[in-house]
Design a protein around this nucleic acid. Structure first.
Lengths: 194, 194, 194, 194
DNA sequence: AATGAATGAGGATTCATTCAT
DNA sequence: GATGAATGAATCCTCATTCAT
């Protein structure tokens, strides 16, 4: 038989309110992974499934599909902000964190490139907003007169373009090559561990 | 009944086979415009509608959605090749044409960034192929030892990223700013008029 | 926009998960009726409509059109198996049940005649399998040396052919006449009431 | 490139009125073959293509899809009639021809089993008509009191059922086995060569 | 008389979102 | 608070049929 679901009454149990926070986190993580694997167009059901929750839970936490992507982004941006705000932050270090996110998160990239044309993510304004937060974070730790000062987000967008481009190498390699072309030195590429 | 029956007989006129070539061109043009306005995910029906033809015509000319995008791309790439092959082609001139296409054609960009994750356009190999044609065309008119020689497509991908990024300015401005950041001088941004 | 949006909010009521089992049964019943009335090629939407559910429900329960027909068939075959396994089953009695299904279920017939040419129901192997279950069930209650022993399924196929043929009379009449021509006595033609 | 047709103006030449008769024959032959290979649901375009003509020609000869099937059938029936009317026709010989057609022509079978439920071939009346012609032809050469006299078409329908059934063996084998079960002796299975 | 392009209705299928339980 | 079934709009794609050439 090739049938689908049969409601047998075996519900996985309601873990109660305590699970709520964990569910949200699981959803964001699942979303990041699904986005990376299948792009921003992936069905929400896939995200819920991977998070191990019902679709309803997803909707409890996020009003619509854009909100899911936004949550993933929020996390990306927040890490960058934290890296920049951290004790002893260096330009190279922060750019390393930024680069890690560029290389890992399809959603991050997708958002950076959301230009309103995409149907997905009508939120140009939202993208702009996040972009500005990234810029602020970066600028905060860049020395005065750094050569990128005036073109910070442009450079980020460029590296982001390099990451998804068809050139050979891993995403990380491409990102580093791109920074090099821009004459920028980047520290170790890794997530920020606050 | 499995017949398809025409509801009433009021057909909108069949312009006849003569229209075929024109239709194909109209479809490609419509696709470029629709892609620019709504992204590569835009419904094919929208393209057909804008081209002023029935959906069937679209399917007669292109077996599936990828073929539509491919046709648009083919045109982009061909223009660049022609620009590069033209009498008295200069690096700046060719890059200008390339830049025009980057700034105009969402499909072009989409392809350049096709990374297999998107479901849409599984054709990584195809992207690679077109990318190589562009590279070959460019390299052919770059002086030996040009600083981009080894990173040509990376640079293109970077500019492409800049074009779609959330930074302010028109697409063309962003592209030019990106080239400038890379230390490359670009000629007038315009299509190639063979 | 790629969203699916509800035109106005006037949804026809969601009877909730409780309806699931009932829906499945309703779909199988509807399928049997629609098949009888319009053949195996009938649109799935017609089946969903008759079952009083949305198309999505049909797809939740059955992955594709073959699965729908398979479900109907499964029921046919199961009844025959039960009739054969029942206390005091007689050859005539079981053939009566078989005959009832032949006379009622277009899907049953369609399957028996699936010869791979039809595109529909590629499942020759599946047909063979079900056919064998019917054969096993019948053989189990036929006395040794019954004249049909060696040609059981051939005879069933023949009666099935008679049922759908253009000869006059009701389906049931034709079936009985066919058995008579084969020299086989059949009990009352009726479904099995376990 | 995966594009479809491109009107290049290279038309295969209009062979003029002389071709008309040949085209019709080619279409009927093509239809028989396509039906055999893909069932009665096969697209008309496939038939036209195999016949080596445009779709328009098909429509010139046949008003709609049913007419195509009808033409194939007509030929089946006509051959049987001719076989029956031929000098020295024997029951076995005619049944051999009939059996050949049963075993070869999916359309023939499809029609015999068209019971109005199938959507395809609404023409129950037409089926009845052809069926009667077959009956008349057969009866004309059967000796008085032959055991099938009263159930001639029923028997044909039964054999037809056997032919398409899931039992093992070639179509021809199944047909012969079915006749044997009915206690009828059949001559060589072959088309009628008038 | 032949060709094959154009048309568009209709059927399959997917998924965002709602909601009974 | 969670679950996952139900809904149906929207998109893809196919093909019967028409008709300009």
């Amino acid at each position: 038989m090739t049938e689908h679901a049969t409601s047998d009454g075996q519900r996985p149990a309601n873990r109660g309110p305590r699970a709520a926070a964990g569910n949200r986190a699981a959803l964001v993580t699942a979303a990041r992974e699904i986005y990376a694997a299948h792009g921003l167009d992936a069905p929400l059901s896939a995200i819920a499934r991977r998070a191990g929750v019902g679709q309803g839970v997803l909707y409890r936490h996020f009003p619509d599909r854009d909100a899911v992507a936004a949550a993933v982004l929020e996390e990306n941006v927040r890490q960058i902000e934290r890296a920049a705000a951290a004790e002893g932050a260096t330009p190279g270090g922060v750019l390393g964190v930024l680069t890690w996110h560029l290389a890992q998160s399809a959603a991050f990239i997708g958002l950076l490139h959301a230009d309103g044309t995409s149907g997905r993510f009508s939120a140009h304004a939202y993208a702009r907003d996040l972009s500005e937060r990234v810029e602020r974070a970066l600028r905060g730790c860049l020395p005065d007169g750094h050569r990128l000062t005036d073109d910070l987000m442009l450079a980020v967008a460029m590296v982001s373009g390099a990451v998804t481009g068809p050139t050979p190498g891993t995403r990380e390699h491409r990102a580093l090559a791109a920074w090099r072309l821009l004459g920028v030195t980047v520290g170790p590429v890794r997530p920020f561990e606050g």
